[in-house]
Write a protein that binds this DNA or RNA. Structure first.
Length: 679
DNA sequence: CGTAGAACGTCGC
DNA sequence: CGTTCTACG
């Protein structure tokens, strides 16, 4: 559930970002959301225990997308359920069960469409599914870690302890957790919106001036979170107002009681537990192979801390995916007879033999792997073929083709090169993970209301900005160092272009024969050009104006011409009026009003009004033809790119800009009525 | 105006 | 999980 309605209220500090801006960085990935999305396309198979690898493929595609852009991903998996959340989880399980029953009923009635919908609602990302992915990740030398409890806390730990520069997730919970840098809504092109904790005080919808992290956290809990239902009638706005006025939850509750608002007697106690759960949840420290608290426990806290997650002495086994995080039973190898994984593997084995006539494999995993790549190669076209590229992004010590033992896995999780990246000078001002996972839940003020974000930063925020110095890959060029920090800095994009790195291609898809045909090659080079050059550097004319818009962060607006007919050909802006631009306006992204290709598909993602205009896919719209071929050459579905164009928002299109400086564009010719919208 | 709840989409064929 | 729409106070 996350924090309901939090993200929409923070949209003014959400900045569009393409992951290429994270070149050389290390990111933690909320694997659940990827697995879940990937599972939608094969939910029936998963529910029925039939063999499928589409969800795995989906995740691997995204892993490869990250690696393609020189980003090192650490995939984080959910672990055991927290006691506080078990109630909610039971509910969800029940809903899933109901949907499964409904699906089977629809299926027997021949109503496959309805059945599929129900199957989708019934999919559960079980540990065994996660384990399937982990097997592939091992094979691919992709870093991963299974959180002892919530992936959110684990990812926050990784971010706060500077092991990653950013977190990719869909879950707004990362914000109350205090994660310094989050990328939401990353799509299959690598485009998403970035949240940085340090920008929070610039938010427009709600003013967070004078807010501490503690206050923000309490506000979130007060408005209702996974650990504590909100009081009736309490939402984000009221919680914000109350916290702003009283600065702490106990005073808020006193005030509420004084004003004859009925507050359950246990509420205060539960609230305290919720706060502590956010602050001190148990996570796995990959550097010491120990379970630690997200931030260290103050001494004056009670002794019964089991709600933070009981302490299992098998943390390592769980983190490495060898043990089921819930049942704590081994998940290893081929001798699992109970879950569908073994069925899957057996079936796959058959398929592989049939399709490939492969020699006898050493283990089932290898065969699974071949099967997967067979599947994948039909869909996936790597940007550029490099015959023999082992990924530089992760383990440099182990050969990709070697079977990875448990011991290797440990080092893989630890990602030793990261530790070595903590340069002495940084360490001096950046606390080490083990003792200093200070998520800053102190009374420190978030930031002064003034706008000079870069200069007047509290030490903590400086800390959060440090990765630019502390984390980079040794094997990569110097400029990359700057790139991390420059994620929001437009001017540095130029540097990046000269800096295109070798495309990392996972061996997951490398079984595909090279250069299947000329067309492929053409498309690939086209794609390379477009993606690497055109789309970034805007070498083609149509998008040139948009480049400025994008990189200067100007707000573009388009008039409402929803009655205009669909026109995806010859897309060129009729009129453009540019105003004075400044980087400040990056934060005015709240009034973005353009929908783009695929944005229709992504529409559910993020309100109707953020960031669409600045997306690369918008640029693509200006040269739809090329983009479509680009995308298809990437192996991503291009369906919809053409069919769905821009859609004029039906409402909320007025001149609602907060400041006058924006680029106004008449996009009337892009007007598009989405195909699947009924009247 | 803000909250609560229902409906619907997520992917990809 | 999110967003969007709607009803209700």
């Amino acid at each position: 559930m996350g924090i309901q309605g939090l993200l929409p209220l923070l949209k003014s500090v959400m900045v569009p970002i393409h992951i290429k801006d994270l070149d050389g960085c290390c990111v933690a990935v909320d694997t659940y959301s990827w697995l879940h999305k990937g599972a939608l396309s094969c939910s029936k198979e998963l529910c029925k225990g039939l063999p499928t690898v589409r969800h795995i493929d989906y995740c691997m595609h995204r892993v490869n997308l990250l690696r393609h852009y020189g980003i090192k991903p650490i995939l984080v998996f959910d672990g055991d359920l927290l006691p506080m959340k078990s109630e909610q989880e039971k509910k969800r399980a029940r809903v899933r069960k109901e949907n499964l029953a409904r699906a089977i009923e629809h299926d027997s009635n021949g109503n496959t469409a309805a059945a599929y919908e129900c199957y989708q609602k019934a999919v559960d990302i079980s540990p065994s599914i996660a384990h399937e992915l982990i097997q592939v990740l091992k094979q691919e030398n992709v870093c991963y870690v299974v959180a002892p409890y919530e992936a959110d806390a684990q990812m926050t730990f990784l971010a706060v302890s500077q092991q990653v520069n950013a977190v990719i997730t869909e879950d707004s919970d990362l914000i109350p957790f205090g994660c310094p840098r989050i990328i939401f809504k990353m799509d299959k092109f690598g485009q998403g919106v970035e949240f940085q904790y340090s920008r929070l005080q610039q938010n427009k919808e709600l003013s967070f001036s004078g807010f501490t992290k503690q206050m923000l956290l309490e506000m979130c809990i007060l408005s209702g979170c996974d650990y504590l239902q909100s009081l009736p009638g309490m939402g984000l706005k009221r919680a914000h107002a109350l916290i702003k006025r009283f600065t702490s939850y106990d005073k808020v509750i006193k005030h509420l009681r004084y004003n004859t608002v009925s507050v359950p007697p246990l509420y205060e106690e539960l609230f305290k537990k919720a706060v502590l759960t956010f602050q001190h949840q148990r996570v796995y420290d990959t550097l010491t192979n120990e379970m630690v608290h997200l931030s260290s426990i103050p001494e004056n806290i009670g002794d019964d801390l089991d709600f933070l997650g009981p302490y299992p002495d098998i943390a390592k086994g769980i983190a490495e995916g060898e043990l089921d995080p819930i049942t704590k039973m081994p998940l290893m190898g081929e001798n699992i007879g109970v879950n569908r994984k073994s069925q899957l593997k057996n079936v796959d084995l058959g398929s592989v033999k049939k399709k490939l006539d492969l020699p006898v494999q050493k283990n089932l995993l290898t065969q699974y792997f071949c099967f997967a790549s067979l599947e994948a190669k039909r869909k996936y076209r790597a940007p550029r073929m490099s015959p023999n590229h082992s990924s530089p992004s992760c383990n440099t010590s182990a050969s990709p083709n070697e079977h990875i033992s448990a011991e290797d896995t440990a080092s893989k999780i630890n990602c030793p090169e990261i530790a070595s990246l903590l340069q002495p000078e940084t360490v001096a001002c950046v606390p080490l993970p083990s003792d200093s996972v200070d998520t800053g839940f102190s009374t420190e003020v978030l930031e002064s209301p003034s706008h000079d974000v870069e200069e007047t930063r509290t030490p903590e925020h400086t800390l959060l900005q440090q990765p630019k110095h502390s984390i980079h890959k040794p094997c990569q060029t110097l400029q990359k160092e700057q790139e991390c920090k420059a994620a929001t800095n437009a001017t540095e994009d130029k540097i990046r272009a000269e800096n295109r790195k070798v495309i990392v291609r996972s061996s997951y898809f490398q079984h595909k024969p090279r250069n299947e045909n000329n067309e492929d090659e053409k498309q690939k080079s086209l794609m390379k050009d477009n993606l690497s050059s055109n789309m970034c550097e805007n070498t083609f004319l149509e998008s040139a104006p948009f480049k400025d818009g994008y990189f200067n962060g100007q707000v573009m607006k388009r008039k409402d011409h929803s009655n205009n007919s669909l026109q995806t050909e010859s897309v060129k802006p009729k009129k453009m009026r540019a105003n004075a631009s400044s980087l400040e306006n990056v934060h005015s992204a709240s009034n973005l009003r353009t929908k783009s290709t695929d944005e229709k598909a992504d529409e559910g993602k993020f309100g109707s009004n953020i960031s669409h205009i600045e997306r690369y896919s918008d640029i693509a719209e200006k040269s739809m033809e090329r983009f479509v071929s680009v995308i298809s050459s990437f192996g991503f579905s291009s369906s919809g790119s053409r069919a769905s164009g821009l859609r004029a928002p039906l409402k909320d299109v007025g001149n609602t800009n907060n400041n006058g400086s924006f680029v106004e564009v008449d996009f009337s010719q892009f007007a598009y009525i989405p195909k699947n919208r009924k009247t």
